[in-house]
Design a protein around this nucleic acid. Structure first.
Lengths: 200, 200
DNA sequence: GGGAGCATGTAACGGGTTACATGATTGG
DNA sequence: CCAATCATGTAACCCGTTACATGCTCCC
């Protein structure tokens, strides 16, 4: 086709495996337990945070593939703790994935939207409650993302995580605004439908 | 606790089952095939559109539970086609779910954000490309949602779907804007990091 | 002493996907 | 006639979850 070198096909792995390997790509040794906590306050905002058991399973797979190595923690830490580190092969693999994986649409499962879509089956007041609760949850998440952004901003080498935390903050602010606008639309619709019902 | 009647606990079903039952709650008889198409251009925007095989499986389950009934299509349609309709019990069940299910955070798996989070592993130019592609995809989806909103708006009884289509449109417009802002942030970051590298 | 947190896993299950099989009808 | 679409499903597979089991350590 061309003289350019063909990109090697990126290894096929479930996204969670890449996420775990990605957490390790910041070059620190981490235990499965660490990874879970770390995922809970970073990945959570824009990507599902996997169950702990899943993390251990992925680590096992990644080790089998030679993308991570593990060692038992030093004697000063008496706990039975296994630390994982990314290998050169692992770095090559995840670079390939980040660089070459196709852009896919984000996967969204929005329960509140689904139930609003079925609004004809619910009490309008209850619908309002749901959307208002979602709006408040979004506000709280925006706040959390803001904190995450602040703490990432002061850490060297975390420029990209900080950037994405800012993105998350804006995302949840937008979600909050969208919920507020939906509330307005719901009120209008309730008024219209109420009128129609009364006029009948 | 109070004298108010306790709400009956909503039946436990996976979200996809409720989504399928919800599609049937608009009181029209639909085939599995119809349901798939219908999901593809409505649910898709705010909720994952299930695979066709999954829809048939859920229909079987819903029928076993007595939430839908089915009949073979009339003789004038020679195809081997089974039409499903919601039953009174099904209506009660889905009303209970819409009304009483807890508000849960939407589930988001944003591959582009994940890869931006791992930006230190990628070529900045490629990162830009990805985010720009995502921005354009979002714009296209906003347009599609807008069309869906327009066609729902002129259909009686589809007020809530129309409302959610408008919500989807705004959602994808926000997504588009967020992508554009991330591009700016990426450019800034590339400049900063580039400077640092040059000064080294 | 005892609860909270640290730490690692196994087992069972289920929801959902892809791939495949099958066949009829419609329209260019 | 042939491709596209209509139409329904089965089988294999796997990702990921919940529930559970186990034991250690820190600190009140």
């Amino acid at each position: 086709m061309s003289t350019a070198a063909e990109a090697p096909p990126p290894a096929e792995l479930p996204p969670t495996a890449w996420a775990v390997l990605g957490l390790l790509s910041f070059e620190r040794e981490l235990s499965g337990y660490d990874l879970k906590k770390w995922a809970d306050n970073s990945l959570r905002f824009f990507y599902w945070s996997p169950a702990a058991s899943q993390i251990y399973a992925e680590l096992k797979r990644l080790e089998r593939l030679g993308f991570v190595t593990s060692r038992i923690a030093a004697q000063d830490d008496l706990r039975n703790k296994r630390l994982f580190a990314i290998t050169p092969a692992g770095l090559v693999a995840i670079r390939g994935w980040v660089q070459h994986a196709p852009v896919e649409p984000p996967m969204l499962k929005h329960g509140v939207a689904l139930r609003a879509w079925l609004g004809h089956l619910a009490d309008p007041a209850r619908l309002r409650e749901m959307v208002a609760e979602h709006r408040d949850n979004s506000a709280a998440l925006a706040e959390e993302a803001s904190n995450a952004a602040a703490s990432a901003a002061i850490t060297k080498g975390w420029e990209y995580p900080a950037l994405v935390s800012r993105w998350s903050q804006r995302y949840f602010e937008a979600e909050q605004r969208l919920a507020a606008e939906m509330l307005n639309d719901l009120d209008e619709l309730a008024a219209t439908l109420g009128d129609a019902r009364r006029r009948r």
